[in-house]
Amino acid sequence: MKNNVILRLFDICAEFDDELILNKINLRIYDKSFVTLLGPSGCGKTTTLRIIGGFEKPTSGKLFFNSLDITDLPPYKRKVNTVFQKYALFPHLNVFENIAFGLKIRKFSKKEIERNVAAMLELVNLKGFEKRGIERLSGGQQQRVAIARALVNRPKVLLLDEPLGALDLKLRKEMQTELKNIQQQLEITFVYVTHDQEEALTMSDVVVVMNNGQIQQIGSPIDIYNEPQNAFVADFIGESNIINGIMYKDYMVGFLGHDFICVDKGFACNEEVDVVIRPEDVKLLEAGNGRLEGVVESIIFKGVHYEMKVDSAGYSWTVHSTLPKNVGSLVGIDIDPNDIHIMKKMEI
């Protein structure tokens, strides 16, 4: 089922003012896949995308397109189109002219241009807006013009830089589905940048988690969520409780003054580790049950579940549960061995 590699980033490094912004990025992007670059603000997502688009030169490393070296190819020669972070629509052109821009440059006939633009307007639900000026469109409509303007060129790869950043939650959800449909319908490779982990998990085939200019983990959304490779990924993808622990031996970890059975092995004897536990995996029991004991400090209703803070021996647990507990009440805490994730301490 795997397609061939359409884009390959090989040891890409980037510097601004002698500061290392991207540190040896290695990434294979498969044809027709939906790849998301996910990471906190300033981690280098836009820079990575700009290098793929050709707007920034890497200080070292190579970029391959269908195994051809395109590191030095100018942007207008790349078979890649971009949806920019702030849309960058042409303010002096109307909706039709904006979308037609790329086709006009490539000397399509008038008829073909009209047909293609009409098809795009249909696809992004903007029929009837042809003659509108850009500044008379809402944020979401501008967004869709930006997408149509890029897509109409039938790029092999579409780069999208936080395209839904400016939209409200409802429109965002709608556009997420719409984009995913478009991607599957047109069979285009999407490289999508976001700092919203939920967006990344729901839309992508592959998620690339970045931090400080380095790739932390590459994997399917399920892998990334269930098997984070380090505490950063665990914390960034959904909240996590991250506790200092000591790995006594295989399948045995100690934290918060207790020993727990776990399913991880392969650490040095008595190695210091990060113990990562998802909020929904923390079991709250009647007082007296469970290996740990805590006091409920706060509770917030979050829609589907309650989020509680539970203090236990100085550590404040984040707990998600559908069963509320009273603030101030004493509770027992326990965790299944399967839900205890042991991670190597990050070297910083």
Binding site: P75, V80, T82, F84, A88, F90, F101, I105, R106
Partner: peptide, 22 residues
């Protein structure tokens, strides 16, 4: 905005056509 010029490059314009069209 520099990004508008980049968008034109992205869509296939170079030098002269960026000047006349943008």
């Amino acid at each position: 905005e520099p990004s508008v010029i980049e968008a034109a490059q992205d869509l296939g314009s170079s030098g002269f056509s960026i000047f006349t069209k943008i």
